[in-house]
Nucleic acid binder design. Structure first.
Ligand SMILES: [Zn+2]
Ligand SMILES: [Zn+2]
Ligand SMILES: [Zn+2]
Ligand SMILES: [Zn+2]
Lengths: 137, 137
DNA sequence: TCATTTTCTATAGTGACTAGAGATTGGCCA
DNA sequence: TGGCCAATCTCTAGTCACTATAGAAAATGA
């Protein structure tokens, strides 16, 4: 059996985060030692790795909770799981698009300043007036 | 003089957000009517537009506060302002890079599922095992 | 046995808002 | 001038996914 510290080292998930996941219902309430400390075995470690990987891919706690619930029913159709992944892909693509628009404007704003005093600073002026922007964002 | 509602409509910044910016020190404490309601004139409106545009470009409240402080000293060199913009550009580019890596993996995960039951679902398996990923993320 | 490390619970803080409750004020119409 | 309703006021709490702290208890090693 692993202590919470062991589990933390093996998975790379910080101890308070493991407890937080338990509180959020992503991890089942852990078994306890005689002295009330959490003890873990392989299945919990696997689930935590799943959670960690899903979080690294940007899925929300709520989405991960749904996926875990789905995993408990191996015979059911996997449409829901596929939909969650597809939605996350869409969300990531939308974020990239937004950031690309920001990057375009910021590149101009951050590289075009020729003045050396605040009162002539292109950065300050460009931030004050969206009409200096080339597109919406 | 504009009421907070007028200012909100003209700038597109919600009323509670305007009060929040005042609390955070981005807007000076507003003038008040006899009945203690906030009243605004053109300079406050311009500052709020500045704040809004900067927020739309992803700058933090803290960065905006610095820029506003700098604006109060028109004769000073604008290096600091230029640095803030450059840092924001760098931050945006890093976010894009991270998201692009996620997109690559998510595209594979979200489009490769052929099974129709949870127990065969590629999404669930791929989330459980990072070694199925093509790169780090 | 003692000291050190680990773990426990509970609470508060992060950033940038957003939502609500309950009390006042403003402006319009009769 | 009264009445009414929308707008505004302050204050508190909620959001998300953690992270940090305090003070107490348990586990480990010499
Ligand atoms: Zn400049
Ligand atoms: Zn703009
Ligand atoms: Zn599937
Ligand atoms: Zn991976």
């Amino acid at each position: 059996m692993l202590t919470i510290g062991d589990l933390s080292r093996k998975t790379g998930v910080k101890i308070p985060t493991i407890r937080y996941y338990e509180q959020m219902g992503l991890l089942d309430a852990a078994e306890r030692s005689e002295g009330n400390q959490r003890r873990y075995a392989a299945p919990e470690r696997e689930r935590l790795s799943f959670i960690k990987h899903a979080r690294e891919l940007g899925l929300t706690i709520e989405a991960i909770r749904e996926l875990i619930d789905l995993s408990a029913h191996p015979e059911r159709p996997c449409e829901e799981a596929d939909r969650i992944a597809a939605e996350q892909l869409t969300a990531v693509r939308e974020k990239i698009e937004k950031l690309r628009r920001l990057e375009k404007e910021l590149k101009r704003i951050a590289t075009r300043c020729a003045g050396d005093q605040i009162k002539d600073c292109y950065v300050i002026r460009a931030l004050a007036h969206h009409d200096m922007c080339e597109s919406d964002h």
